[in-house]
């Protein structure tokens, strides 16, 4: 393959005073690849996304996103306090902001084209039924569908997802994962998917980036998600067990376990 990578990291490192999150990170992600970024809390998964969004500067090395930060779509965690309640707008307005919300001016020209693109993005995630309702009155799954539409409406080359399945039930997790996978297959959108739980996306993932305490491993899921590799990364005995096609990680202590998302925000998503 000689195509230009969609995302490229060369000897990339990120440090804060007194602490190095990771360093020497080199990887290329091809157009249309689905990459899962895994690791315990504080391992710098979300910071990696911030680097690719141009919001954090690398301490060392280089990061490159094809098309620059404007060609990037972003799906945040559902229902998190810092994400905001998005009150006082409808679903369609949220999607529209994903198209041109960062531009100055009122944007009165091209309103018809804009409405059409928003409608297409809403239809692509099957949200026509509820997109006209107040966003904060929708269920978690409905909100997250619209978040995906918001991220994709600008037709980004790269889609960055930061724990987008958190606080959704299993059926909703599957629906959202499928939407994202379909897009990357149909439009060749590259997906970087930060998650603490690989199983809902396991069948779509081409590559895993597993970060632990500054150490990392990149490779196909079944090469990285093994007892040997994870024990080495965690520097503690960790067992990976495959049950019915799902990977379960059991560690010496629960901090390794996938059942501990950060920003724990249990909420009943109807």
């Amino acid at each position: 393959m000689t195509t230009r990578p969609a995302v490229r990291l060369v000897d990339a490192g990120l440090s804060f005073p007194g602490r190095t999150l990771w360093s020497g990170l080199t990887m290329s992600v091809q157009p249309g690849e689905f990459v899962a970024v895994l690791g315990p809390n504080g391992s710098g998964k979300s910071s990696l996304l911030k680097v690719l969004l141009g919001r954090l500067r690398l301490s060392t090395g280089a990061a490159e996103v094809a098309g620059g930060p404007d060609a990037v779509g972003y799906v945040p965690q559902q229902g998190a306090v810092e994400t905001g309640a998005a009150t006082g707008i409808r679903g369609v307005d949220l999607v529209g902001l994903g198209l041109d919300g960062q531009r100055w001016g009122l944007g009165l020209r091209g309103m018809r084209r804009r409405r059409q693109r928003v409608a297409e993005a809403v239809a692509a995630v099957g949200a026509e039924q509820f997109a006209g309702k107040p966003f904060n009155q929708l269920s978690g799954g409905e909100q997250q569908r619209l978040r995906v539409a918001q991220a994709l409406v600008g037709e980004p080359a790269v889609l960055l997802c930061d724990e987008p399945l958190l606080s959704l039930d299993v059926a909703q997790q599957q629906a959202i994962s499928e939407l994202i996978d379909r897009r990357r297959r149909e439009a060749g959108t590259t997906v970087l998917f930060v998650t603490h739980e690989i199983n809902p996306i396991l069948s779509y993932v081409d590559k895993v980036l597993y970060l632990v305490d500054g150490r990392f491993r990149v490779g196909p899921p079944r090469e990285v998600m093994t007892s040997a590799v994870l024990s080495e990364l965690y520097r503690a005995p960790v067992r990976v067990v495959e049950l019915d096609g799902q990977l379960h990680v059991a560690g010496a202590h629960s901090a390794v376990c996938e059942d501990e998302p950060h920003h724990v925000q249990q909420r009943v998503a109807g």
């Binding site: 141009g54 945040p76 994903g98 919300g101 001016g105």
Partner: peptide, 23 residues
């Protein structure tokens, strides 16, 4: 307000994504 309305609305209702998109 006419100049900053869209980014301001974005930052007001959806601060995380707005910041991610460069607002």
């Amino acid at each position: 307000l006419a100049v900053i309305y869209r980014p301001l609305l974005f930052a007001s209702v959806d601060p995380v994504v707005a910041a991610a998109r460069g607002v």
